[in-house]
């Protein structure tokens, strides 16, 4: 914080700043967290690969379209695990390893629904279920639109 801003702080705030600066900062075990995330994220991906191979082997899905049922299955499994409280424990252990794959999306939807259940089905569950997942969808659709636009321009005018 710059000195100029510091002067404007109230005495209580200054006291807090002093306290925060002197507080013993616990160093995060960065490497350990990365390894945990890598392992758990990798295991989730292996499960996803197994599911997609299963769908290809036993149903009429090709490599092109096997992603759709695989993602749906993974999200369904995560929803069950979130409801039973297993996924939360996994997320505490793995961090980003469990949040970055598509399972993290399912977890974000269901945990919001569970959290706001007491507020009613319309304003509670309905209003909050996409609290975190909504922006993911919006940014996803928007960036896909931008990429498609760039591709179209390159193909139409760049002769790619």
């Amino acid at each position: 914080m710059s000195n100029n801003k510091k002067k404007k702080l109230t005495p209580t705030q200054q006291e807090y700043q002093q306290f925060a600066n002197n507080r013993e900062v616990v160093k995060r075990p960065l490497l350990k967290n990365c390894i945990k995330a890598f392992l758990v994220g990798g295991i989730i991906c292996v499960i996803g690969q197994l599911i997609s191979t299963f769908y290809m082997y036993f149903f009429k899905f090709t490599e092109q379209n096997v992603g759709n049922p695989t993602v749906a299955t993974l999200i369904f499994i995560t929803m069950l695990l979130t409801g039973f409280g297993v996924y939360d424990r996994l997320a505490q252990f793995a961090g980003a390893g469990s949040a970055v794959p598509v399972t993290g999306f399912g977890n974000a939807v269901i945990s919001a629904a569970i959290e706001h259940r007491t507020e009613g089905f319309v304003l509670g569950v309905g209003g909050n279920i996409f609290k975190l997942a909504g922006p993911v969808i919006v940014f996803g659709v928007f960036s896909a639109f931008i990429v498609a636009l760039i591709k179209t321009i390159l193909i139409q005018w760049g002769g790619l």
């Binding site: 191979t53 290809m56 082997y57 009429k60 899905f61 090709t62 490599e63 092109q64 096997v66």
Partner: peptide, 11 residues
């Protein structure tokens, strides 16, 4: 002739 690199076609 049809050639595919898809795993499903391989199976």
């Amino acid at each position: 002739v049809e050639v595919s690199s898809d795993q499903k076609l391989f199976f």
